[in-house]
Design a protein around this nucleic acid. Structure first.
Length: 1169
RNA sequence: GCCCGGGUGGUGAAAUGGUAGACACGAGGGACUUAAAAUCCCUUGGUCCGUAAGGGCUGUGCGGGUUCAAGUCCCGCCCCGGGCACCA
């Protein structure tokens, strides 16, 4: 009976489903094994043959492990939130849930066809509220956590609050806090913390939360209408769609992944992941060790600020700290904003008190401590506030604010909007009265100009300020000849001297207007400008000019560099360009021609570093910096916090509501916060994300307790989570997918633990895999997981490439100019009237060979005649269609351009194009001809398999023709799993034949016939050699060689005419992971009532592999010349003796004694002559 | 520029320092057949000598080296693929 794959595979697919063969219980009596494939996004295009490669490999391992006695978790589900479904929804108005549903159904059908052993009862979908309830829950945990650098783990934020209430944040505490927080939050006492208004407290806490809202620089993609994470941007354009991306500052949810940078790096060492994958992550995290160095700004060169200008009162250093804080840098944006958009009352008042109108300088929208005050006189320490209606609701907070400012020595006076609007002069009069009543704290608050653009923003004076830089080469400090600031650097404005101001501002403006892409494209252009200020070298005290240059990135380090043109090529180019001095820092450096960046060099600078090798000099330099308190050793990471919000519809809603613009977490009982219905999937007219369209997108707490008892509604967050949210923890949900009370029970987590084998594409190196590790570490820190890495072993399957078929189409230019003029002028020059408009030219395929001959004018007369007649025909038909459009000759250009022809129109082995099918394939091609006649052969090209390249091979087609088992075997047989390779459908014949041969071992003259006769030694040897090789190969994931071994076994057994049960039965089990359908069928025919999937894995036995004899290759000087067979048991000496006794050997030796004879038992004999 | 991979027949590829090219495709030849499909057998890295049996030389990107023996180890280069990149 012939092997009928269609019937067999259909039968077993149904049985497996009916019997629940692949259902997995959390059966803790067995050892577990967790095999997971990376979460697929169900795209509309469906699967091509490249997609299942990894699934097949992991399925083989899963099945093998099950045979070997493990309880194997091998689930599948869908990462079903995402951009493509939403883009489609915007275009068609179809709800993304609907298209996603359709795509999933299609995906599932295709997956089922291949015969995977997935336990579908555990399927998860990220877009399912039962699932994203827990994604939101994890988000809330991140929001409610901070990173305790002292314990090096995440802790509940309540602990931090308790600590603030008890001890404040002073001294050592101020330095335990991680990352940027440490620099920016000043110290505060417990009392001060308690006195902070709610807003301030929340603002401070935002700097600690692992999920936080801040004004951040983001990658904004206008075409997609959303922000993108760093890993979603490649070369300045969006990875998906290739749309331009710009830098924009906007309020943004972020994840503090940077807190985990070091642990993410360290954790890699213990993982069994490919080196390239680990390297990609290491690059992305980008740890660099070096020093931070502080350069004081020369006070005699820049005006020393008054204490008032610094926003401080003399002697109160703490105050200056806070004015110099992160909060300051956050607030400054807001302050600028508020200045540009004053309320009517503010503006009216400003007009009457600005300049010297009150007899002293008044500043507006000024930052004092953590507040932005409306107006202030610094010398008099008087704050003037104009309250809008909103303040009525905030009287309590205002009181606290007044109190707090009062503690800092400021008096606060308030006016109401109406007062100001009704009679600004009266208000002014009152202000002057107040001013006169207060003592002068400082008389120096003079500012030459009140120009908003040019004045340094108050609160931060320039003089006495320091520029902090990060360097990996503190050993080159003596080579510093200038400093360079990024154009966005906070100090640029205050460092700029008046004479340089126009130039600097113009430069900063130009730089900020350039897109990321422009900036990247022009890396070789040097540009910059001198600020006019100087800093002081910490060692030599020399004047160091401060420049601004856009080769310095605002986002890395401190946004400022110490330029060492002798030791850094970028600095060198900058110095050369602007004629700045270049000092050699290393011995033997050729500073005329470039910087010496070598790390093996010896430092030649005068002073304590002279003569030291780079690493020693680095250490020494850091010591010296620390002595002077001018810097210290520091580690910097390239990794940035991850943008978490998306201005999109089709994602998990972020469970946050706003009260007075402060984000608060929804209570857990409100989860899931279900994605609302909207009328359109587009942003609102005001540019709000689509969720803002939803009706009643507000949170109304059910319990009163909100003050008066009147229920208030609060607006909900309108951005949604990015694609990576749901996929960062899905592996946990599979362990316990139906749990309603938890993301997964502790029992399930403790049983299944980490993923033992994670299979997926290498393209996830810096996105998914990093976030996935981050969330796992976080959940571990907070005690929900006993492990802190999600996947022990990671294998990246290679890409299966497509073989595209390329045809060359004549360009219009070629047709019109090259051909027509040439051919017609060759024949008869008067015929140009027959030329047609180039617009009407149909597709003409130009064989490459022929094209070359036309260009070189070496056509045979016959070819000329053919082409001419073809062209005459063409022009004729065209003229009949459009008689009035006589042609014109256009200028010559490219002759032809390559196009992708659909591979279904091309003979796969010869590349011959079926011109009839081609003409039918699209209206555009209907009139296509092959220039010169004959068959057109398309050039093959190996490239990515994709719809747009018309080279997609659908697994369904292969399965219909050859069966799923053949497809599975062939995909594995193609080559090493991790390697990319082109798909060649022709090769599949080999594996198809193999299965037929295997099937035939169970048949004699069309009758199923397996004998119970004991196998011969030879038959056993074949069996056990195969079992050994296959077992070992599966363990090392070398599936192509196991398939080869099966082929060898079948060839040998067929030659031996072996139809014996004791050989075939174990062999069937061994084949079952690779070709489960045929194996089940034969297993049943062999008389087994239960599924082969639970059969015990056959062990190989070494005794059957023992050979009596070994055929030794006899080589002379390493070259094999002959074979001699000896018993294995023979000793080295005996082998040597017998070899030398051989007459042929003697002949080759020509009577000479060999210099040496090497005998390697069971390997080789080498005779050295 | 830096960091990872990788380079073996016409093709996909195999090879614990020990007979390079297993296994498969393709190609060529043959058998069966009226024919085709299917199946089976033989040949197949290159090259040279020989009627043949058989034999020689050469060959794993290039150039060196270590070794009795190198696709495999070491040094230097070239090329291809991937990652990162004015990252200080």
């Amino acid at each position: 009976m012939a092997y009928e794959h269609r019937d067999i595979e259909k039968k077993w697919r149904e049985r497996w489903k009916d019997r629940g063969t692949y259902r997995v219980e959390n059966d803790t009596s067995k050892p577990k094994y967790y095999v997971l494939d990376m979460f697929p996004y169900p795209s509309g295009a469906g699967l091509h043959v490249g997609h299942p490669l990894g699934y097949i490999a992991s399925d083989i391992v899963a099945r093998y492990k099950r045979h070997s006695g493990f309880n194997v978790l091998h689930p599948m589900g869908y990462d079903s939130f995402g951009l493509p479904a939403e883009q489609y929804a915007i275009q068609t108005g179809q709800h993304p849930a609907k298209t996603t549903e359709v795509n999933i159904a299609r995906y599932r059908e295709q997956l089922d066809n291949i015969g995977f052993s997935f336990d579908w009862s555990r399927e998860v979908r990220t877009s399912n509220p039962d699932y994203y309830k827990w994604t939101q829950w994890i988000f809330l945990q991140l929001f409610e956590s901070w990173y305790d650098a002292r314990q090096d783990k995440a802790r509940p934020i309540a602990e931090l609050i308790a600590r603030f209430e008890e001890r404040g944040c002073m001294g050592q505490d101020a330095s335990i806090l991680t990352g940027d927080v440490e620099e920016f939050v000043g110290e505060f006492s417990a009392a001060e913390w308690k006195a902070f208004e709610e807003r301030t407290k929340q603002m401070v806490l935002q700097h600690f939360r692992l999920a936080y809202l801040s004004d951040a620089w983001v990658n904004w993609c206008p075409a997609l209408g959303t922000v993108l994470a760093n890993d979603e941007v490649k070369d300045g354009v969006s990875e998906r769609g290739g749309h331009p991306v710009e830098r924009k500052r906007m309020p943004q949810w972020s994840m503090r992944i940077t807190a985990y940078a070091q642990r993410l790096l360290d954790g890699l060492d213990a993982l069994d992941w490919s080196t390239s994958m680990k390297e990609a992550q290491r690059n992305w995290i980008g740890r660099s060790e070096g020093a931070s160095v502080r350069f004081e700004i020369k006070s005699d060169l820049t005006p020393s600020p008054s204490p008032g200008e610094r926003g401080t009162i003399p002697g109160d250093n703490r105050f200056r700290e806070s004015a110099n804080s992160f909060i300051w840098s956050k607030l400054i944006e807001r302050a600028k904003d508020m200045r540009h958009n004053p309320t009517e009352a503010e503006d009216r008042l400003w007009q009457v008190i600005r300049g010297n109108a009150t007899g002293g300088r008044i500043r507006r929208q000024h930052i004092i401590d953590v507040f932005i005050v409306d107006f202030v006189s610094l010398p008099k320490q008087l704050v003037i506030e104009v309250d809008g209606d909103i303040h009525d609701l905030q009287t309590e907070e205002d009181a606290l604010r007044t109190l707090r400012l009062g503690e800092e020595g400021f008096k606060v006076i308030r006016f109401r909007n109406e007062e100001v609007l009704n009679d600004p002069q009266e208000v002014k009069r009152k202000i002057i009265e107040e001013l006169n009543a207060r003592p002068d704290f400082n008389k120096d608050d003079v500012e030459p100009s009140d120009d908003e653009h040019s004045a340094p923003l108050p609160g931060r004076g320039a003089g006495g300020e320091v520029i902090e830089v990060f360097t990996t080469r503190p050993d080159t400090l003596f080579g510093v000849t200038f400093l360079t600031l990024a154009p966005e650097h906070d100090l640029v404005s205050s460092l700029t001297t008046d004479d340089r101001r126009a130039e600097v501002e113009a430069y900063v403006k130009t730089a900020s207007n350039r897109s990321e892409r422009e900036r990247q494209a022009e890396v070789d252009k040097v540009s910059g400008v001198f600020t006019g200020s100087y800093a002081k070298h910490p060692f030599t005290g020399a004047d160091i000019p401060v420049w601004v240059g856009d080769y310095v990135l605002a986002g890395y380090g401190t946004g400022a560099v110490m330029a060492v043109p002798g030791g850094d090529q970028r600095d060198w180019r900058f110095a050369k360009h602007f004629g700045l001095p270049i000092i050699a820092v290393t011995e033997g450096a050729d500073i005329e021609n470039g910087a010496d960046e070598s790390k093996e060099a010896t430092i030649c600078s005068e002073g304590f570093l002279k003569g030291l090798k780079v690493p020693d000099a680095v250490r020494r330099a850091i010591q010296e910096l620390e002595k002077l308190n001018a810097g210290e050793g520091r580690i910097n990471f390239r990794l940035r916090d991850a943008a978490f919000g998306r201005q999109r519809y089709w994602g998990e809603p972020i469970p946050i509501y706003y009260k007075d613009d402060i984000p608060y977490p929804l209570p857990e009982s409100e989860l899931p916060l279900v994605l609302p219905e909207v009328d359109k999937f587009l942003p609102t007219e005001d540019g709000e994300p689509p969720l803002a369209r939803a009706k009643n997108w507000t949170y109304t707490p059910l319990s009163p307790g909100e003050g008066s008892g009147v229920r208030s509604s609060y607006p909900l967050e309108t951005t949604t989570m990015p694609g990576w949210a749901g996929s960062s923890w899905y592996f946990l949900r599979y362990m316990d997918p139906k749990n309603e009370g938890r993301f997964a029970s502790p029992e399930a987590i403790n049983y299944w633990q980490q993923i033992d084998l994670y299979m997926g594409g290498a393209e996830h190196a810096t996105g998914h895999l990093l976030y996935f590790r981050f969330w796992t570490k976080f959940l571990h820190d907070r005690g929900w997981l006993p492990f802190d890495e999600p996947a022990k072993k990671l294998v990246n399957q290679g890409m299966i490439q497509g073989v595209s078929r390329i045809a060359y189409k004549a360009t219009k230019d070629f047709f019109a100019y090259e051909l027509l003029t040439m051919i017609f002028s060759m024949r008869s020059a008067q015929d140009t009237s027959e030329l047609v408009s180039v617009e009407d030219i149909p597709i003409v395929l130009v064989p490459v060979e022929l094209r070359n001959r036309i260009v070189h004018g070496t056509l045979t007369p016959q070819e000329e005649a053919t082409i001419e007649s073809q062209l005459r025909d063409l022009t004729k038909t065209l003229q009949e269609k459009q008689p009035n459009r006589a042609g014109k000759v256009v200028s010559p250009g490219n002759h032809s351009f390559p196009v992708h022809v659909d591979i279904s129109l091309v003979d796969p082995s010869t590349g011959a194009l079926d011109i009839h099918l081609f003409r039918e394939s699209s209206p555009e091609n209907s009139g296509a001809i092959v220039l010169g006649g004959g068959t057109y052969f398309c050039r093959p090209e190996v490239e990515k398999m994709s719809k747009s390249k018309h080279n997609v091979v659908n697994p369904d087609d292969i399965i219909t023709k050859y069966g799923a088992d053949t497809l599975r075997l062939y995909e594995m047989f193609l080559g090493p799993l991790e390697q990319s390779k082109p798909w060649d459908t022709n090769g599949i014949e080999g594996t198809s034949r193999f299965l037929k041969k295997f099937w035939n071992l169970f048949y004699e003259s069309d009758v199923f016939s397996v004998s119970d006769v004991a196998p011969t030694k030879e038959e056993f040897k074949t069996l056990h050699a195969t079992l050994k090789k296959v077992t070992e190969d599966i363990e090392k994931m070398s599936f192509n060689t196991s398939v080869s071994q099966f082929m060898i076994a079948v060839n040998e057994l067929a030659a031996l005419k072996c139809h014996k049960r004791d050989v075939l039965e174990p062999l069937t089990v061994a084949l079952a992971p690779f070709a489960p359908h045929i194996a089940e069928e034969l297993w049943e025919k062999l008389g087994h009532p239960t599924s082969i999937t639970v059969a015990k894995w056959p062990q190989w036995d070494a005794q059957y592999l023992v050979e009596d004899n070994f055929s030794y290759p006899i080589s002379f000087n390493g070259k094999t010349r002959m074979q001699m067979e000896f018993p294995i048991a023979l000793s080295k000496e005996e082998v040597e003796a017998r070899v030398l006794a051989n007459p042929e050997v003697q002949q080759r030796l020509e009577g000479k004694a060999p210099k040496k004879v090497i005998v390697v038992p069971k390997r080789i004999v080498n005779i050295v002559v």
